[in-house]
Design a protein around this nucleic acid. Structure first.
Lengths: 256, 256
DNA sequence: TCCTTTGTTGCACCATGCGCACACCCTTGT
DNA sequence: ACAAGGGTGTGCGCATGGTGCAACAAAGGA
């Protein structure tokens, strides 16, 4: 492990929520401000941070460029993006695409809904594995050992009255997802949000990703969101095909 | 300067174009593979890189999250995004938003056009300062010393027959931009692309950003793109107002 | 005008980062 | 079945790079 790189990474983490002063970063890291300044100067040289006019430090465009270049080259996103944009245009709700990443599930794409309210979810951020529809859609399609590995770190924290907090109860929920071919988040993370989600298959037919539609309950309750499932299954299936999957055609539990 | 952080940053740069093997990164950096492995392990711990199933290394979701979080918090982007999406929806061409960053100009937002062809421009990437319309729109509005500082590193490389390669010629072009209130790229970078651009003002009235419309000449030549200028000036003005600018209302040279 | 805070730099010291040697794993060829 | 080649991963001793300190500069507020 490299201590200097560790510190540099901590500086980057600290700068993402907003520009930070040198002395604040030194306090945060517990090192001398001359140490932080040298780390910042090296990060600045690579455009990973930049210094603003008021002498605060923020994330640099070089880092942003690395992230955007990486996202632009992801097959899953390339296959999904135009389809998610069209779907978002049609139905007007927030669309998420998420992918398994080791023992995490992360958002990899997002199409904002038409309404005045924006979801706080963010590309690159981890998904709540025990509440998010898209997480359940993926977990339900994983081999048991892989599913267990992802859930090993889950705390099953109660967020609302609807949150599933028991592991046995959650296993039953996943069995239900496998049976019906889609997952839901029925106010389990935020009581006023509802979501339906379906899995996306990779070229080998394995489930590594999922796509979801989320809406405010005040705008569209879960029952009405379910009406979009045929369309969502179709989108998932198209994405899966573009990734090389050659399984059964059509909508429903076999799709995606 | 920190040598370890320098190397870690070089690893990140190398991974953005695509996943890389350990031995390749060691060759690239000219250090021992055990050195690279330890740097990678530290970067992985902070989710700045991730290891794929085939043991190659790629940019991690943690880094992507830092970038997206930073972009999401930028006032300029927040003000611009819904307006650029609406404009893109209306006219169907690629829209760019770029901002001055020290002595560089970088793309900070982009709305893809409707057509089958996608522009290679990328958020976070630097703009060609002597050819891009959006760069000329910004440069024309800078104080002379600031403009010179940006141009100091420009090479005025000839890309097409239309490229402006003389500094005096370029100064004349900027004078023209000031006079007419908009800039163009008339096949100066790629012969088959045309673009119109206008500046965006910050809260204090200074010009630090610009917005542009780009199209394939085969779809819409420069003369027709000019017809979108009233709409583009209006968008730039709205963005400027949301950033706190209180200057003259209306379209034309005074706008944005 | 003075004090405080923040940012910056040169220098000496020591803790960390380095490469080496070895081990392990996987694939390919005989 | 075994050997060879290529790639990855780790423990350890040592040299060097990263560190904090002291001093200085700049800016802002009392």
């Amino acid at each position: 492990m490299s201590q200097s790189v560790d510190r540099a990474a901590a500086i980057l983490d600290a700068c993402a929520p907003g520009p930070q002063r040198l002395t604040h970063l030194a306090d945060l890291l517990g090192v001398h401000r001359s140490t932080v300044l040298r780390l910042l100067q090296t990060l600045e040289r690579h455009r990973l941070v930049r210094r603003l006019d008021d002498l605060t430090w923020t994330i640099g465009y070089g880092l942003i460029g690395l992230a955007v270049e990486t996202l632009d080259r992801m097959d899953l996103r390339t296959a999904a993006r135009p389809r998610l944009e069209r779907l978002g245009q049609e139905i007007g709700h927030t669309i998420h695409l998420a992918q398994l990443d080791g023992h995490d599930i992360v958002y990899v794409d997002k199409v904002e809904g038409h309404g005045a309210v924006r979801m706080a979810s963010r590309i690159g951020a981890p998904v709540q594995v025990h509440t998010a529809g898209v997480a359940k859609a993926i977990l339900a399609g994983l081999p048991p050992d892989r599913c267990e590995a992802v859930l090993a770190s889950a705390t099953f924290e109660r967020f609302t009255d609807s949150t599933i907090t028991g592991r046995a109860e959650f296993a039953a929920e996943l069995a239900k997802v496998r049976k019906q071919g889609y997952a839901v988040d029925d106010g389990e993370y935020e009581s006023y949000l509802a979501c339906v989600a379906v899995p996306v298959r990779d070229g080998g037919g394995a489930i590594r990703a999922g796509v979801s539609i989320t809406a405010l309950c005040a705008i569209e309750r879960l029952e009405k969101l379910r009406r979009h499932l045929p369309r969502l299954w179709a989108v998932a299936s198209e994405i899966s095909r573009e990734l090389g999957w050659t399984g059964p055609a059509g909508v429903g539990r076999s799709a995606g």
